[in-house]
């Protein structure tokens, strides 16, 4: 495993970071980290606390700019300056804290920032086509086999699992190339986690690239196609998930493999 970035076939990249480096003052958060996600696959990003997972994710999202290295989205090398620029390229993220406004209804949450307005004068005044939005949101949720009580209830009435599912559905709805998920199962019980993991496969089967940052190694390993492990700001391992066991991943996370090679 000389260089993970080189081993990845370059055509058909949903989102990728290559040889990324980033430092904050004296802290070298990333030294040489690479990750590649192709359309239709689930890539798991593992790493111990402080390995640089969050920084990598934030670079992919355009929140931070890397000191070195390149970013590829939808087969094109890009240098985004903001989160909205990355969103414009069809990338969306499910953040760990979800960031759903509790007082908005399910429909309004799904469409926040992307509201559909009515035709004609009403539309020019910003009147939203809520019926159309509801129908489309309903269809999108069904496609992911997500069931919610009613799309008119506020988010605050939903359970933790339902909110997670809503956040995933929202991200899927507005992404055309890839969905990034930050610890999507961290706050969930066993059954809900299983459902969210299934959701990752469903999303990937629609041709989107899925990058999952997680500590839930056994569960995520089962649904991932490939695994990238970060260790102290470097990519320490990149392998198809089928070749790996949980101990392999843990070994790479604590730097066993990196030190041995």
């Amino acid at each position: 495993m000389a260089d993970p970035a080189e081993t990845a076939p370059s055509p058909g990249i949903a989102i990728a970071g290559k040889h990324l480096a980033k430092r904050f003052g004296h802290v070298r958060a990333l030294i040489d980290a690479s990750v590649t996600v192709r359309p239709g696959e689930v890539v798991a990003l593992f790493g111990d606390n402080g390995a640089g997972k969050s920084t990598l994710l934030k670079i992919l999202l355009g929140i931070h700019r890397p000191d070195a290295g390149t970013l590829v989205i939808d087969d094109r090398e890009v240098r985004p300056h903001s989160i909205s620029e990355v969103q414009g390229l069809g990338v969306d993220c499910v953040h760990q804290d979800l960031a759903l406004a509790p007082d908005l209804s399910v429909v309004d949450s799904m469409y926040l920032g992307h509201e559909v307005v009515r035709k004609g004068l009403a539309g020019r005044l910003g009147v939203v086509a809520r019926r159309e939005m509801t129908a489309r949101a309903d269809a999108a949720l069904r496609e992911l086999s997500i069931k919610l009580p009613s799309l008119a209830v506020p988010v605050s009435d939903l359970s933790g699992g339902q909110r997670q599912a809503l956040a995933v559905a929202r991200a899927v709805m507005w992404s055309r190339t890839s969905v990034l998920m930050d610890e999507p199962t961290a706050a969930l019980g066993a059954r809900q986690s299983a459902i969210v993991c299934e959701l990752m496969r469903t999303v990937a089967s629609r041709g989107l690239g899925v990058l999952v940052v997680s500590h839930d190694i056994p569960r995520v390993l089962k649904v991932a196609d490939r695994v990238t492990v970060l260790w102290r700001g470097r990519s320490a391992l990149e392998e198809p998930a089928g070749n790996l066991t949980v101990p392999d991943v843990v070994a790479a996370m604590v730097g066993y493999q990196a030190e041995a090679s």
Binding site: S145, G160, R163, A190
Partner: peptide, 12 residues
């Protein structure tokens, strides 16, 4: 921290 309900109703 959201308290997870093991029987959370998000499946059909």
């Amino acid at each position: 921290k959201a308290i997870a309900d093991e029987r959370d109703p998000i499946t059909p």
